[in-house]
Design a binder for these strands. Structure first.
Length: 402
DNA sequence: AATTCGGGGTT
DNA sequence: AACCCAGAATT
């Protein structure tokens, strides 16, 4: 816990920690030019010289970076897609998914004319599926009303589905190098440590923005807004980590109040989170004679909205007993069959644990596709993770039986 | 201002 | 287990 409450007087004091001759943005961008992560959606701040035995001088940038803001900009479509995928999702997870997605939909026009089911299918396993539905809707709006081009202001971007405060600012800075104050989880942490901000998140967010505004490059055409934002995020993920920050390697430690007079690990302060309840339910995995499984398209809103899933009961905290009695199972099953119990699939969502009892059956017929569910070859089904786990229970069951 | 949205990696 | 992640939309 922070040992002491912050106040504005401390902050003004703090800005004089570093020598007046040094500027945070200069130091950070200098670090970024040498240490920027190589990411599929990113244009490197400068070409990397990978040839061996050549110039090892790393301090090539000594003058003002006047032309830096005019280096090649990334494709706005790529920036937008990556930012949507990166919402609450790690760079390691997004990397390969981003490349696969781009291969399937090279431009926003391809994306806009594709069926939404193809887009949610490609999103399977990534989570937060409203992102996929909003992504598709946003593409259609941009093609229909914006000539397929992204607006360059935060205000206009925020009107689009799936684009909120962070993503609007990120696109404005990264794709167009316009001024916008970007505040994500990484930058929140860096800023909270710079100012040793004791107000807990999420209430601290506007305060942190105010703090950071003192350091953000002015709305100047020469300024490197996009690189500054990405540098802060790289710093947050690689140096100013939640635990065990590498302060000795930090290019802006001279500006950091937590590094100098506190414990960086204590920031940002966050409100305690509620503990997760456990819900229970039943899922039915049934194969037809061709080896296909019955899947239903879930409602467009709510959990796993618009995704494929197994027929089953709802998921409830009050239903304590897995119904093992065959008579009751037959009453709630999607169709008549000899149902076997295949065990539990365990999964944890953002706000609850799930224990799903899995029942399995094999038919010797091929029922028609109905309004409620369709038959799909298992290994081609684009399923959310919890449903993949249920399918795995079924697969294990028949493997052990054989 | 709180809650609802997934899933995987780290510690 | 708890925490975190280039958060947004809804209530």
């Amino acid at each position: 816990m922070p040992s002491k409450t912050n106040n504005s007087k401390d902050n003004k004091l703090n800005q004089k920690i570093a020598p007046a001759s040094l500027r945070l943005d200069d130091e950070l961008l200098r670090w970024y030019d040498e240490n920027a992560r190589d990411l599929p959606w990113r244009i490197a701040p400068k070409p990397k010289n990978k040839s061996k035995g050549t110039n090892k001088n790393t301090n090539k940038i000594t003058g003002k970076n006047k032309t830096r803001s005019q280096h090649k900009r990334p494709n706005p479509y790529h920036v937008w897609l990556s930012e949507i995928m990166l919402q609450q999702t790690t760079v390691a997870t997004v990397g390969p998914r981003f490349l696969t997605f781009l291969k399937q939909w090279p431009t926003i026009h391809h994306l806009a004319k594709s069926p939404v089911e193809d887009v949610t299918g490609a999103w399977a396993g990534l989570g937060y599926y409203a992102r996929a539905r909003n992504l598709h809707k946003c593409a259609q709006v941009l093609v229909a009303d914006y000539d397929g081009k992204f607006p360059q202001s935060e205000e206009e971007l925020k009107k689009l589905p799936g684009i909120g405060d962070y993503t609007a600012a990120a696109i404005t800075t990264i794709a167009f190098n316009q001024y916008a104050l970007v505040m994500d989880g990484n930058i929140e942490r860096v800023t909270a440590r710079l100012y040793r901000e004791a107000t807990p998140l999420p209430a601290a967010k506007p305060i942190l923005k105010e703090h950071l505004s003192h350091y953000w490059p002015r709305p100047d055409k020469q300024a490197r807004h996009g690189d500054f934002a990405q540098a802060l995020m790289d710093l947050g993920s690689g140096i100013c980590r939640p635990k065990n920050p590498l302060c000795l390697l930090c290019p802006i430690k001279g500006f950091c109040q937590a590094h100098q007079t506190g414990n960086p690990q204590d920031y940002p302060v966050k409100l305690a989170k509620k503990q997760k309840p456990t819900r229970r339910g039943i899922g039915f995995v049934v194969y037809n004679q061709k080896g296909e499984i019955a899947l239903e398209r879930r409602a467009d809103k709510g959990l796993l909205g618009g995704m494929l899933g197994f027929p089953g009961t709802g998921w409830s905290e009050t239903e304590k007993s897995i119904l093992k009695q065959e008579s009751k199972i037959n009453a709630i099953a999607p169709l008549a069959a000899k149902w076997d119990y295949a065990g539990e699939a365990l999964h944890t969502f953002t706000h609850f644990h799930l224990i799903m009892g899995v029942y399995v059956a094999k038919l010797e017929t091929n029922p028609r596709r109905t309004k409620n569910y369709e038959w799909i070859v298992p290994h081609t089904a684009q399923l959310p993770t919890v449903m993949k786990k249920a399918l795995e229970r079924a697969t294990d069951h028949f493997k052990n039986e054989a």
